[in-house]
């Protein structure tokens, strides 16, 4: 489980460009909790994820994952525990390497490491996993990833990030750059994988309807602070309209979407 305590981050302190981007934020995620995160442009959603993943050190506060204080653990060491997806489908894969090579690297590198040592065994396992995506990728293990479409690459990245289940999965608008149909597919796949591995997961989305429909809890950030924490009945009873009416000003996000407008 994840504990974030009094986490703060200011960019360019002491300069005219000073920007208080995050905090103080205190947050606890239970094991297996699937949380959606919303907020306007620049609310600090990505900054929160970057801090948890260790892209920079926070100015103050602590991060604990699975009982281990990871506040000062280097980014690449945390990566063994944390799987990440970004809006940009190009970010998570090596384009000139084949799908099999990408999957192998992810598989052999994950925290506790994959246990399949034989190449043939692994290939069969990868093919079976790819088949579940329903994108016909299982027959193209030898294809360089650079030749895949954005949606295919994002689905592959999702598979790579979870091929050995991470302790925490951070999804930062990972369907935002995809066309609506592909986005729907990748979101369904996300739900399936998170449920199957009982993953602890945080997902940023700018679609409020998706945020309320997905997972078990919804958080909202405004100016780097948590202003809403919805779960249980309060969340079940919440509608997009009510939420929008209440937070009209803070959801000043021109990409915030209403239900029925298609994109995820």
């Amino acid at each position: 489980m994840l504990h974030v305590t009094e986490l703060e981050k200011t960019f360019y302190p002491g300069t005219p460009a000073e920007k208080h981007a995050l905090g103080p934020v205190t947050l606890t995620l239970q094991d297996g909790e699937f949380v959606t995160l919303i907020g306007g442009n620049g609310a600090g959603k990505s900054t929160l994820f970057n801090a948890i993943a260790g892209e920079f050190l926070p100015d103050a506060g602590f991060i604990e994952l699975d009982g281990q204080d990871i506040t000062f653990l280097p980014e690449h060491r945390r990566a063994a525990l944390i799987g990440r997806l970004f809006q940009d489908p190009m970010k998570g894969t090596a384009p000139s390497m084949t799908m099999e090579e990408n999957l192998t690297l992810a598989y052999l590198s994950a925290g506790r490491g994959g246990t399949l040592r034989g190449k043939a065994q692994r290939r069969a396992f990868f093919a079976a996993q790819l088949e579940r995506l329903g994108l016909g990728l299982e027959t193209r293990l030898k294809t360089p990833v650079g030749l895949l479409s954005g949606g295919q690459r994002q689905a592959l990245t999702l598979l790579m990030a979870t091929i050995v289940p991470p302790r925490l999965l951070l999804l930062d608008e990972h369907t935002a750059a995809l066309d609506p149909a592909t986005a729907e597919k990748v979101l369904a796949l996300t739900n399936e994988i998170v449920r199957e591995h009982h993953l602890t997961c945080m997902m940023v989305t700018h679609n409020i309807d998706t945020a309320l429909r997905t997972g078990t809890r919804t958080l909202m950030l405004e100016d780097g602070r948590l202003v809403l924490d919805l779960a249980g009945e309060a969340r079940a009873g919440m509608t997009v309209e009510t939420l929008l009416a209440k937070f009209r000003s803070s959801l000043n996000n021109d990409r915030i979407l209403l239900p029925g407008s298609g994109a995820v």
Partner: peptide, 17 residues
């Protein structure tokens, strides 16, 4: 494989711990 990914996408290498 990680050496190969380094020239291709360093962020991915970090993501591979």
């Amino acid at each position: 494989l990680a050496v190969r990914a380094t020239g291709d996408n360093p962020a991915m290498v970090r993501a591979s711990s």
